[in-house]
């Protein structure tokens, strides 16, 4: 995770520059700056804070929980109005959240979840639903294939939360259709390289994807690798095989335009507009909120 330290530092510096006197001061402890999505998420949180008149104190934990605990304690010491945490890991939060509660600072979770003994230690979690993303992809595919489809699946990193939940959501939907089944599934580790390797093997083991109607990838990067592998094998992704994935990164937008991909579920990075209103409303009039507020997911197709 240290490898992101330099990049993370760049963000931290820019965050400090834009903090001036605003009505509400909110601390945000971010996981780090890995991948494409998280830096975009951080940038959006900082940008849209200005729109809401929020003084956002941004701290990059560089993937380390101890860094994150230190940041949260610093926010408590500064007496911010609220704290947003994108947790690095799910456990080990009871103590620091108790400290925040005693200081009467409300905690909001974004992105990942935490496990605490006392759920009242945080107000709510505002995030997208990986399971829902899988369901959306499954529903689109069911509609598009009219409920008859043999699917190859490119899983994310084995055991990771998005991989588990997207698979569950997807399977929950296609389980309703007896003629839909996953005939091959392998982990591509969320990378283009991994997606390409796995698809190459699928092409060989299924005799050029004979009878396969769709490829479901847990993220766009793997799907982009799969598209390359299919093109190199003389197949036409998007036409011979339906291509559906999750994330909606810029490169998949290009692929959708080119007709090489068919659908991508957006994992929003522009989520400030969903998160800040909830927090500001709560600060104005504190009240019991549901423990999870889901940020809606959109499915994009070529047109």
């Amino acid at each position: 995770m240290l490898k992101n330290a330099l990049a993370g530092a760049a963000f931290a510096v820019s965050a400090l520059v834009c903090s001036t006197a605003f009505a509400q001061t909110i601390g945000f402890s971010q996981v780090g700056s890995e991948g494409d999505w998280r830096p975009a998420f951080s940038a959006n949180m900082q940008e849209s804070a200005k729109d809401y008149g929020i003084d956002l104190k941004f701290a990059n934990a560089q993937g380390k929980q101890e860094e994150q605990l230190r940041a949260v304690r610093a926010f408590i010491a500064q007496g911010v109005d609220a704290i947003i945490i994108a947790p690095v890991v799910v456990t080990g939060w009871d103590q620091v959240l108790q400290e925040a509660k005693e200081a009467e600072i409300p905690i909001f979770l974004v992105d990942r979840d935490v496990e605490v003994k006392d759920p009242s230690l945080y107000v709510t979690r505002i995030s997208a639903d990986f399971n829902l993303e899988g369901k959306l992809a499954g529903a689109w595919l069911a509609a598009e294939s009219k409920g008859t489809c043999k699917i190859v699946e490119l899983q994310g990193t084995t055991g990771s939360a998005p991989a588990i939940e997207r698979k569950k959501g997807f399977e929950a939907v296609i389980g309703q259709f007896p003629a839909m089944e996953i005939v091959a599934t392998q982990s591509g580790d969320f990378t283009t390289e991994g997606g390409k390797k796995v698809m190459e093997a699928f092409i060989k083991s299924t005799n050029n994807l004979d009878g396969i109607c769709a490829s479901f990838a847990h993220n766009d990067n793997m799907q982009l690798g799969a598209i390359q592998a299919m093109k190199e094998a003389g197949l036409k992704p998007g036409k011979d095989v339906l291509m559906v994935s999750v994330d909606y990164v810029p490169a998949i937008v290009e692929a959708l335009k080119a007709g090489e991909a068919n659908a991508s579920v957006e994992l929003r990075s522009a989520v400030g507009k969903f998160i800040y209103p909830v927090i500001l409303d709560y600060l104005k009039s504190p009240q019991e909120l549901p423990k999870w507020i889901v940020i809606p997911s959109d499915l994009h197709t070529a047109n």
């Binding site: 992101n4 991948g35 982009l224």
Partner: peptide, 13 residues
């Protein structure tokens, strides 16, 4: 060149 992209975080992990 194989993946047509630079992915410093996860390439050649």
């Amino acid at each position: 060149a194989d993946t047509h992209t630079s992915d410093p975080v996860s390439v050649a992990m």
